[in-house]
Design a protein around this nucleic acid. Structure first.
Length: 504
RNA sequence: GGGCCCAUAGCUCAGCUAGGUAGAGCAUCUGGCUUUUAACCAGGUGGUCGAGGGUUCGAAUCCCUCUGGGCCCGCCA
């Protein structure tokens, strides 16, 4: 059974699956594990007939913690400590949080993940947390005790479970609470200001360890996946659970702790280190279903070694195998293969329009126009009369991948006309006999192919060795695309000149 | 000092939560094939399952210890 199905197997009654990512920087491939793990739970629930709500909480009221490496110091120094939803975007119009949220939401659209997006600023502004905050403010001593006991940390004497946003300087990290009379929290700020924050509005926020259980309470969260950083003993899940039970009188959600995603050879993806690939960048250079597949096929407890280069191509190969299993075209290696495909695919496809991505990688390097590409695909069994919009997109993605992530191994291009190549005697003989026939060859795929094949046989060479000679001369590699189609697409004179130059 | 996760073929991983003679894909090699465009077909090489101990007739699988890698137990999320 797939891990997502196993997780929800025994759950009954309406479920609310919650996920959350802070828009403090580019939302990257590593963050996708949060949203997709939740999404798969949601799907698994629906597929077994259990009602489910799936939400993504965008923590946009969180303050800017520091000037991140990707920000301009002179622009952002003044904004440290202010909510992400109230400071300007690094470029263009709009707020900081929306600037990073937008490409993420577009990516979700691209990969076909539908989720209810909730901004935490809105939750505060609309009073959704009103009751939770009131409960919290009336239970400060008990909450303090829970935090100190469960997490083992010592809280400062003036600690309060609410951080007001200063009405004068806009900072959330420089205020201290002085008192509470519903619905106002009195505070003073280091900037000299003092005032009242209305708990029914977005005039302050709960600190994370309180806010989390407050979300469970206010939104009725029953399931939540989260990274292992929250899961340590005494960590925020432990304190959240205690607060949920003892203060709010609710059960903490059923949880799953997932591992991080690493960039192959470069360690964990972390916005602060810059070691990231933005999710919105990845979907430009990888088929959209692959992002889902990456997460769906891996056990959540295992870290993922993500390789956008050759590894990506292997990943797509595997995805396509699973697809074939689903359609009964191949035998399953594992009982979950078909289910994993089902959770990963973005849209339904007909088997006669399957085109392997690896194949496409070759084709786009040979054919410059869509028309030529279509004809090539049709020769290969493609059933459509024109390129589907999906395929057109795949072509775009293939080109982008070749430019951005592809290793030399899968790329090819014609060598410069005058570049030198070392040939054996046999290869030289073969090349010169080919050159001799150049003018009489019928310049079609079959004509070229047949001629070359005859020449190889005449000289008693292994086909492999013979073909390799041509690849060495043309693209400097041992292997390459089938010669007939490849050469027929190229200018005959140019090839002739190339062989002359090599043999000179 | 404490908690958690991971370690299986060159690479990516499955198998582990009902213990029973090590698996898949990719890579590599061999053979076939070169009008299904690095295709495809057949086959091979390749692992003392991180180390040590224990339980067992039998351990990759259960228990303990250790090693290595990663994350957390301050603030913030």
């Amino acid at each position: 059974m797939h891990w997502a199905d196993a997780f929800v197997k025994d759950l009954e009654g309406k479920q609310t699956v919650s996920t959350g990512i802070s828009p403090s920087g580019h939302i990257h491939v590593g963050n996708m594990r949060e949203i997709l793990t939740g999404y798969f739970f949601h799907r698994a629930l629906q597929d077994k007939g259990t009602e489910s709500r799936f939400i993504y909480l965008c923590d946009d009221i969180d303050p800017l913690r520091k000037v991140y490496p990707f920000l301009k110091r002179e622009q952002y120094e003044q904004h440290v400590g202010k909510p992400l939803s109230s400071i300007p975007a690094p470029e263009g119009e709009g707020t900081y949080s929306e600037y990073f949220l937008k490409p993420f939401l577009e990516t979700l659209e691209t990969i076909g993940v539908k989720v209810e997006v909730i901004r935490s600023t809105d939750l505060y502004r609309d009073g959704v947390f009103e009751k939770a905050i009131d409960i919290v403010m009336n239970n400060v001593p008990r909450i303090r005790e829970i935090l100190e006991t469960v997490s083992g940390r010592q809280l400062e004497a003036n600690w309060a479970p609410y951080n007001p946003i200063c009405s004068a300087c806009g900072r959330i990290n420089s205020t201290s609470v002085k008192g509470y009379t519903y619905p106002y929290i009195e505070y003073t700020c280091k900037c000299g200001n003092s005032g009242k924050a209305d708990i029914r509005k977005n005039e302050g926020k709960l600190p994370w360890r309180i806010e989390w259980p407050a979300k469970w309470y206010a939104l009725g969260v029953t399931i939540e996946p989260f990274g292992k950083d929250h899961g340590a003993a005494g960590g925020s899940y432990d304190t959240g659970k205690a607060i949920a039970e003892e203060i709010f009188g609710i059960e903490a959600p059923k949880y799953l702790i997932y591992e991080r995603i690493f960039l192959k050879g470069k360690g964990a993806m972390h916005s602060s280190t810059g070691n990231v690939i933005a999710a919105s960048e990845m979907v430009k250079s990888a088929p959209p279903e692959i992002l889902r597949f990456l997460i769906a096929r891996s056990q959540p407890s295992r870290h993922i070694e993500f390789d956008p280069g050759l590894g990506l191509l292997n990943l797509v190969d595997e995805y396509e195998r699973y697809r074939n299993v689903f359609y009964g075209l191949a035998e399953a290696a594992d009982e979950d293969d078909a289910r994993t495909y089902e959770l990963s695919r973005v849209m339904e496809e007909k088997p006669d329009t399957f085109v392997s991505f690896r194949h496409l990688i070759t084709l786009v390097q040979i054919y410059p126009t869509e028309d030529m590409l279509l004809k090539a695909l049709q020769r290969g069994g493609y059933g459509g009369t024109e390129l589907s919009s999906y395929l057109r997109k795949q072509v775009e993605i293939a080109n982008s991948w070749l430019e951005t992530y592809a290793p030399e191994q899968v790329k090819f291009s014609l060598l410069p006309q005058d570049s030198k190549v070392e040939l054996t005697q046999e290869e030289t003989a073969l090349a010169s006999s080919f050159l001799g026939k150049m003018d009489s060859i019928e310049w079609t795929p079959e004509g070229i192919h047949n001629t070359i094949h005859e020449l190889i046989k005449e000289q008693n060479l292994q086909p492999k060795t013979g073909f390799a000679a041509f690849y060495k001369i043309l693209i400097g590699k041992e292997r390459g695309p089938r010669l007939g189609y490849f050469l027929s697409n190229l200018d005959r004179d140019r090839i002739q000149q190339r062989f002359k130059a090599v043999l000179a």
